[in-house]
Design a protein around this nucleic acid. Structure first.
Length: 497
RNA sequence: CGGGGUGUAGCGCAGCCCGGUAGCGCGCGUCGUUCGGGACGACGAGGCCGGAGGUUCAAAUCCUCUCACCCCGACCA
């Protein structure tokens, strides 16, 4: 069999790029750091987006759209915020082009310089809170639960398809509340949605936690996150939900009159997940044969391959199967290509991650059966023709569950409790060539004295950072692995994407 | 943004050192034989060698500058 995808153990980064290419998810573009999301990749995003959108709406959120451009002065209103984003902003300075007088093309018209430069949004807190000032006067206007689906730009120096691109697609929720308690509750309720989405739809187990001060969103009081472990033993932040306190309300002067006719600043949250989740999906489930997509997010859940090629008899049988599958809400396609041979198609559909493949040939028709192959384990089985829809419906559920179980087992077996710095270090530094040529060490659960100084020191020594303080961590007295100072509980360390 | 590497046909690469009419494998098109795990044969199409300057009678090849991608580092979802 011709091998077109690099093995994970050989070169994990190359494997990742090969998957993106061979599963036809994205292309590089003419612009550095910006990618073209191709139909296969975009279909994944659409399914993610649609599901998340349903979940947001079920919890009372509505969608709106705010401008791509933010006046430069807005960004500097919140000190922490501007500090966090200043280094990666694209700036619009002019609004017109003209023919180059020397005839060599087109140049920026110097006379079109903008009075105030515009920032291409890296995130929209500032322009949204500037808008909210006009929308909120009374406690009756609250809560304001708004989400937007948009693109943002962060001028990244080092980019990787889906994981870190200069432009990416995301959703950003921005809510306004009358009380601190309500805003905190919102932050956590969104974290629940993200957790459910990651685990039930992406089949990707996550750790819910709080970011340390050092890793907190610029301008937030508290950042909550979900963290997932990738197959190379590195952590990926899959979603964040921020409690913003009254920072933005104060910066943009957003006040409301409470029931007692007293003026107060509004409490805020913001939260987001991005196309990065597609990168997470790849690194959570895919293998050396290609992409593996959880059934709930697959644009095509079942592909029917006629063997050896389309024929009226097989087409008729395929139609019946498709009808039965569609009646159960299963997304199915029939491979009508009569040029490619079956073996080639098998490999191709596996590369693209379609969860289930049905093979129908003359032999199957004679025996009244269909060959069912599952992508996750690559097992094949012949199933009686009449029972195929039930069987496949159950199989899709099984695959979804198996992917989650497999990923959770992987995470659990690569999460290590460590009680001294030497063990910590050797865990991070010991290569695991059987897993990945660039093994990151997995999650490490260890005690930390709570100071940024220690956190940074550990990062400097090992490259590992504190991914989060897990929400469900038990209280456990211990000693910081670096300084030996007292600690009340373990935090989760890892090398991170 | 610093260090290293790579840009030649859709993809993977050779050619560059030592300048002289651009090659290979895969893929692609047509026809035939095939077809239950990436078929085979014949014929054929496809490239101003990433881009811009320069040196030269002559540049994929030498020089300068740029752009993009990959790896490592600092920064980050």
């Amino acid at each position: 069999m011709a091998k077109e995808i690099t093995n994970r153990t050989e070169n994990y980064s190359q494997w990742y790029l090969d998957i993106v290419k061979k599963a036809d998810l994205a292309d590089n573009s003419a612009v550095r750091g910006c990618m073209v999301i191709k139909p296969n990749g975009y279909a994944l995003w659409e399914n993610m987006r649609d599901q998340l959108d349903r979940m947001f709406k079920e919890t009372g959120h509505v969608n709106a759209y705010f401008p791509l451009f933010i006046p430069k002065s807005f960004l500097s209103r919140e000190a922490q915020h501007v500090e966090g984003f200043a280094k990666e902003c694209a700036v619009v300075t002019h609004h017109r082009l003209m023919n180059d007088p020397d005839g060599s093309g087109v140049i920026v018209d110097p006379s079109s310089k903008l009075e105030e430069e515009l920032i291409v949004r890296p995130t929209s807190e500032t322009i949204i809170w500037d808008t909210y000032r006009g929308w909120i006067q009374s406690y009756r206007d609250l809560p304001l639960l708004i989400n937007q689906w948009a693109n943002v730009v962060r001028w990244e120096l080092r980019v990787r398809q889906f994981l870190r691109t200069a432009e990416f697609l995301w959703q950003e929720g921005h809510t306004a509340h009358a009380t601190k308690a309500e805003a905190v509750a919102e932050t956590l309720s969104i974290l629940d949605i993200y957790t459910r989405f990651a685990e039930e739809y992406m089949a990707m187990p996550v750790i819910r936690g709080i970011k340390t001060a050092n890793e907190r969103f610029a301008g937030a009081e508290e950042t909550y996150c979900i963290e997932a472990l990738m197959q190379d033993g590195k952590a990926l932040q899959a979603g964040t939900s921020h409690f913003l306190g009254q920072n933005f309300a104060k910066a943009f002067d957003v006040k409301f009159l409470n029931e007692n006719n007293i003026e107060e600043y509004v409490w805020a949250t913001s939260w987001g997940v991005s196309t990065r989740l597609i990168g997470a999906l790849i690194m959570a489930h895919s293998d050396d044969d290609g992409m593996v997509i959880p059934p709930k997010l697959a644009a095509t859940q079942v592909i029917i391959v006629p063997i050896p090629k389309p024929s009226p008899e097989i087409g008729e049988a395929a139609d019946k199967v498709m009808k039965a599958l569609r009646a159960k809400g299963i997304r199915v396609k029939y491979d009508l290509d009569d040029k490619k041979r079956p073996g080639f198609k098998f490999a191709e559909h596996e590369m693209k991650g379609i969860p289930v493949r049905l093979g129908i040939g003359m032999r199957d028709l004679e025996n009244g059966q269909v060959e069912v192959a599952r992508r996750d384990t690559k097992e094949k089985k012949s199933v009686p023709f009449d029972g195929v829809a039930d069987y496949v419906a159950q199989l899709l559920d099984d695959i979804q569950q198996n992917l989650f179980d497999r990923a959770r087992l992987f995470r659990d077996t690569h999460t290590t409790k460590v009680d001294n710095f030497d063990d910590f270090r050797s865990l991070i530094e010991t290569p695991r060539p059987e897993l990945s040529e660039s093994w990151g060490g997995g999650f490490i659960s260890a005690h930390w004295d709570g100071t940024t100084e220690t956190e940074l020191k550990i990062k400097e020594l090992t490259k590992a950072t504190i991914r989060c303080i897990p929400l469900d961590a038990e209280k456990e007295a211990g000693q910081c692995i670096l300084t030996g100072k007292p600690s009340q509980g373990r935090v989760l360390f890892a090398k991170a994407y």
